[in-house]
Design a protein around this nucleic acid. Structure first.
Lengths: 202, 202
DNA sequence: GTCTATAAGGTGATAGAC
DNA sequence: GTCTATCACCTTATAGAC
């Protein structure tokens, strides 16, 4: 198979892989060059410094993982149950295809929380419509009293954490990858059932 | 105030701080020496190498955070509701006093998942009693059908994730630390209510 | 645009005096 | 046990030829 990517793109792909695997401090420019099949000097020719290269990789990662489909689902015209089901299914499915990204983002943010400012200047997260819907359901006595923020945090916690804690979960509960993968697959639906039951008013 | 710690202990404290703050790859032996108020050569005199020192810090961190009070609570003689309430409250309170440890553990395990083997060889996590209790509650039609593993994962997800994602939560929802801290404080009780409602059979 | 060679500074680790 | 001095290596980054 012929590689049709430009040098610039090859570098970016290699950098993504290296940074996500080793983190900013652990990543090596030499390794990125090797993976991209080029020479170390070219990295600097295209991206000036390790930090600049990292920032591009990081920004892309965080934008893909926090913003896109999720807000759309929350602000759609569906009923609350369907939203939760869609949100959970989509989110887990996306992370399933990029297992190591959450840890990467969360860790680099914990090392340097200021990084998040660079991302959120350009993005605005509007959950007003979802908030309205939730208020309505609460005043209709359909669900328990809960803030949109707290509900979203609970949902995302249950979606993301099992990926972040993969080595622990595997070691403590299963000792084999297959059962872990079954767990994740199962959670695409079980988590939404859990949440829907949690907010239902009895 | 006089420092009564031995040199060995001072090094360990300084190492803990540096490794948790910067990770293995980002930590610097020079910084550890400075914080401990001693000289770089002494680090090697007491702990031979950076890796040896890291392993001790890491092992201590993970043992304090996964095993101790938690299993005791799960296998106590309390009823299920009280167990969940205690577990959530205790767990969040413990992490509150060591905010950066979960991220540290989860990240270093994601970089090198083999590390977990060194810890779990020496510890056995027995949740049989809790499993029995859960089965009983299910067959009594008191709660929904759910495995102990999945319930525990959901609980821990909601306890731990808000700490791991602190910079994101603060930036997206609040933009100030005070509201974030209120959220955490509030979750000591709100999370257990959420979970108890989630497993209740209607 | 791409390469080789090399600079410039840092890093973990050790030797050896006290 | 604790220090200073230093080694050997690695890492980012740049200079300069092609």
């Amino acid at each position: 198979m012929v590689n049709k990517l430009t040098t610039e793109e090859k570098i970016l792909q290699a950098a993504e892989q290296e940074f996500i695997e080793k983190g900013l401090a652990g990543a090596r420019m030499q390794q990125i060059a090797d993976t991209a099949g080029i020479n170390k000097a070219l990295l600097h020719y295209y991206y000036r410094s390790k930090d600049k290269l990292f920032e591009i990789v990081f920004k892309t990662a965080i934008q893909n993982f926090l913003i896109p489909k999720l807000i759309k689902i929350l602000n759609s015209n569906n009923n609350l149950e369907d939203k939760i089901k869609q949100f959970v299914y989509q989110y887990i499915a996306v992370i399933q295809g990029n297992m190591h990204i959450p840890n990467f983002i969360l860790y680099e943010l914990s090392i340097n929380p200021m990084r998040i400012q660079n991302v959120f200047k350009e993005v605005n997260i509007d959950i007003e419509k979802f908030k309205e819907q939730l208020k309505q359901e609460i005043s209709n006595k359909n669900i328990i009293e809960i803030s949109a923020e707290e509900l979203i945090i609970n949902i995302i916690s249950m979606c993301v954490f099992p990926f972040v804690a993969k080595p622990i979960i595997t070691a403590v509960f299963y000792n084999n990858i297959e059962d872990y993968e079954k767990l994740i697959e199962n959670r695409k639906t079980s988590v939404s059932n859990f949440i829907i039951n949690a907010i239902k008013l009895k």
